[in-house]
Design a protein around this nucleic acid. Structure first.
Lengths: 186, 186, 186, 186
DNA sequence: CATGAATGAGGTTTCATTCAT
DNA sequence: AATGAATGAAACCTCATTCAT
């Protein structure tokens, strides 16, 4: 199967173009624009992703896999007490530069069970959270659910006009303070 | 001006229908659907709101005015120490039932200076915040900017599938904790 | 019937506004624009002219009546040998400043039998032509038909971009030469 | 490029249908009607001509190219003394059967510099005129400007109701006489 | 009679998707 | 498997005309 190589390369190029296009123009951008930037014909896009929705889902999955890798790396190397906060900050900062996972997912109204704890991203973040809690850096009663929820909410919000680095920092400070154990409470 | 009565009734019905429709289907819902639900012909919608964008803006303004009223009422009657937290909770809870101000605004990409402190809603919330800070219920270094940002982020997030009352409560608990003064710090 | 005065004044204002509007924007201009410029409501326009077509026809009739008056005046006072040419020139020059009779009529595809010799304008121009022929200034075999046709054609053409006074003059010179008796032919 | 054949055939059919439709119904005819007569879907028309204006322009260009070819043929073969008059007559006669170049152009308000002497049609007609002038069949002081202007005016006028072959002939006779040198003037 | 809001067909244009080449 | 032309259902918006006030 020699032609398979071309097909795989095309799939990757389409995915990359789609991420770029939907990032710039939102999920209502036209599929033609994706094809144009990928340098393929529109038919090729639909051969790989029979529906626009399929394309959106593929992007989201792709981005989530990459994020999960990052989390795993952080968990493996870093100080559990800070890894959790670092990750949280990093995701939101990234989102400010570029629409993230969570955003596309949210905007396109596609339900993908992001918060499903069995999901690999969820699991990875869960591990980070558990580490931070074990290190006493995060209150014990904080659950993965609300962490994911806040991550989602802030990542999406960070894209909006008016959210500069300073506003992001101050907003994150509130969230971080909210996660920390109350002083004087053992 | 006898015929004005009809026009005003229609304008109100269109606005109500539009709020409903865009709430259910997002800002990409068709203007025809709005007309259908308002029980008027499509031309009538365009007579009142020459552009779809105009309709979106009108809804947002309407919702913001209503919210500002609520805030003012809260500020007038309640305990400054709790009014701020109550309001925050109420807005997010409302958003869960129905897309709020902030959401439509954000989704439709309309810039309306919500966070502008001169804006009436911003001013009202600012007063609430100042009251809570004066009462020692909120850290003094918290600024209106991040309050608005978190309000926006959570309101929008609260609409998403998976956000039930419990998740909302726990997420808000994190935020509220983040606003409170650190125990032991004067 | 005291209200009749208002009605007549409105009719005149609508007609004037319509002439202006269709002159500026062509016969596809909206009836609303006519109403706006006439300072009346759209319903009033339709009460006077049940159809847009009726409005166009009325304008044409109005303009034709005015033109016919001019022709009659010219015929009464002027030198038969030059009156004809003068008139021809005047109509075309007027058309350059303002869409004329013939133009609106032609553009809107309304058949109104302009060339009907029983029509007052046709009769007036016919008189002018006869005078010029009697004076030997125009060839005897020229008929009213082609005079009207050329008048129509040139009037309409004169409105177009690129027709300045000089082009108009030279084009008219050709036509005038075409009407004159051939030198040496009795 | 295998699929190109269909596209080219469709483009031609759309152009032909458009010429027919706009000829019959004027430039305000609907693009849908064009699609219907071309036997294609509405989207196909817009793939080839992204705007209605583009379609109009394409027709005009097409017609002008055809006319320019005719003029060139006439100039190559015929007697310079008569070629000019023949051409003039032919264009006007054609216009009577079918809206011509000049007409669509004029009615649609598209500026295309028809009279631009560098334009191929203008050049071709200019050659015809020069030939006729060299042969002494047309006055030396006649310029291309007024020839084009009269051609335009008459072609357009010839479409109107009431212009039968006889009226056309007599109108052209006036124009032709206007072009000819005055007898006795060297 | 005048008003101006309401109507609704129709126009141009976009775009996800199909399919002949 | 890739191409890109064709499809056709909406979408947004305009406007002649009607009709309640």
């Amino acid at each position: 199967m020699p032609a398979r190589a071309d097909a795989q390369r095309n799939r990757a190029r389409i995915l990359a173009a789609a991420e770029e296009v939907f990032t710039e123009l939102g999920p209502t951008a036209s599929t033609e624009e994706v094809a144009r930037r990928a340098g393929v014909a529109i038919g090729t896009v639909f051969r790989h992703f029979p529906t626009k929705r399929d394309l959106l889902v593929a992007i989201v999955k792709d981005l989530m896999a990459r994020l999960a890798d990052e989390v795993a790396a952080l968990a493996a190397e870093g100080d559990p007490a800070t890894a959790f906060f670092d990750f949280f900050t990093r995701v939101v900062d990234q989102a400010a530069a570029k629409k993230s996972v969570v955003d596309l997912l949210a905007e396109s109204g596609i339900a993908l069970d992001v918060a499903d704890p069995l999901d690999s991203l969820g699991q990875a973040i869960g591990a980070l959270l558990a580490g931070a809690q074990a290190a006493g850096a995060v209150r014990a009663d904080v659950r993965l659910d609300e962490v994911m929820a806040l991550l989602t909410a802030l990542s999406q919000a960070a894209l909006r006009a008016g959210w500069d680095a300073d506003l992001r920092r101050r907003t994150l400070a509130v969230i971080h303070a909210g996660f920390r154990p109350v002083a004087g409470v053992s």
